[in-house]
């Protein structure tokens, strides 16, 4: 670097013959660099609220597992479970209708008849399939089934859609986490095949459909409502899952409790702490984002 070249002569252009050397470092070098320009730090409270959805999902799985063990050990009459599932469906559907209150009537009536038709269809299909499902994995050892179902439930937790669905987007809803639902239902089916009689199998799979296919869809809609409702629902679900497990195994209960504490309180704290390492670099070399007027896109 030759120092005798005055700074005034330097220009950020390539088309001029320049008196300074090619590796001259001007004072303005990297002046366009900005760090963390649009950075809005996460705060603890909203993160805890956002992680409620994950806890609810975990609670659904844990309650399901507790139910499975009770059925398997004959602590629970399968007929009671069928009634509980039916009741759950009716309550859930009422909440669903309540949330849909603002949407126009025609589509609502249409979807209502469709829902009733398909729910009866699912009910009958599961009932007729349960003898087949019972013997589905007769040739497989139980150990493989536990491992497989654990793997599938982990997959379900990882791939589930935890985003909230706001009221104005109801019409555009798509089934987002197909793989997640599939994993959970397969897991329930293989678990159900360990049960002693056809009715238990039917009850468990029905319960699985309620908690892994219906509940997540409802949960996404509830998520965009009142935070207090969220907190209550989460606390209720977690408490019930802990209560249901307590009688079966102490160790597992501690494990579940720890996972709730971790997801609800520790993980958000870690995320808030980890933000100090954020170092986002922006400059003129970044690809620009084209700004296009909405009207010309949708006209």
């Amino acid at each position: 670097m030759s120092q005798e070249v005055s700074e005034e002569e330097w220009e950020r252009v390539l088309w001029k013959r320049k008196p300074y050397p090619d590796n001259y470092v001007p004072r303005s070098f990297l002046s366009s660099l900005s760090r963390n320009p649009n950075f809005r730090p996460y705060t603890y409270g909203p993160l805890v609220l956002a992680s409620c959805a994950i806890s609810q999902h975990l609670a659904a799985i844990f309650i399901f597992l507790a139910t499975f063990v009770r059925l398997k050990e004959h602590y629970l009459d399968p007929r009671v479970l069928v009634w509980i599932s039916t009741l759950g469906f009716i309550v859930g559907y009422a909440v669903w209708e309540l949330l849909l209150y603002g949407v126009d009537r025609k589509t609502r009536n249409e979807s209502r008849s469709k829902t009733i038709k398909s729910s009866i269809l699912v009910f009958l299909a599961l009932m007729s399939l349960s003898p087949v499902l019972k013997t589905l994995t007769a040739a497989t050892s139980s150990d493989s089934i536990w491992a497989l179902s654990a793997f599938l439930f982990i997959l379900n937790v990882l791939l589930a859609d935890y985003t909230a669905l706001a009221l104005e987007n109801y019409r555009r809803e798509k089934l987002t986490s197909v793989l997640s639902i599939n994993a959970a239902i397969s897991s329930s089916v293989v678990l159900a095949s360990r049960l002693p009689n056809d009715l238990s199998v039917f009850a468990l799979v029905l319960f699985a459909v309620q908690s892994f296919a219906m509940f997540p869809i409802l949960r996404r809609r509830l998520q965009s409502t009142d935070p207090l409702l969220q907190a209550t629902l989460t606390a209720g679900a977690c408490a019930f899952s802990i209560y249901a497990t307590w009688a079966l195994s102490r160790t597992v209960t501690y494990l579940f409790t720890f996972s709730y504490v971790f997801v609800l309180f520790l993980a958000p704290a870690i995320l808030v702490w980890a933000q100090r390492f954020k170092n986002e670099i922006r400059g003129t070399w970044d690809p620009a984002v084209p700004r296009i007027n909405e009207t010309s896109l949708f006209s």
């Binding site: 590796n23 470092v25 660099l33 400059g283 070399w285």
Partner: peptide, 29 residues
């Protein structure tokens, strides 16, 4: 031993990406 970039913007980018000493990076369009 030396790096060459095709523009001043490219040079700033390369210096940041590869954590090079700026005086080792040349601009030759």
């Amino acid at each position: 031993d030396a790096a060459i970039c095709v523009s001043h913007t490219g040079r700033e980018n390369t210096v940041l990406r590869a954590r090079l000493r700026p005086s080792r990076v040349y601009v030759i369009p």
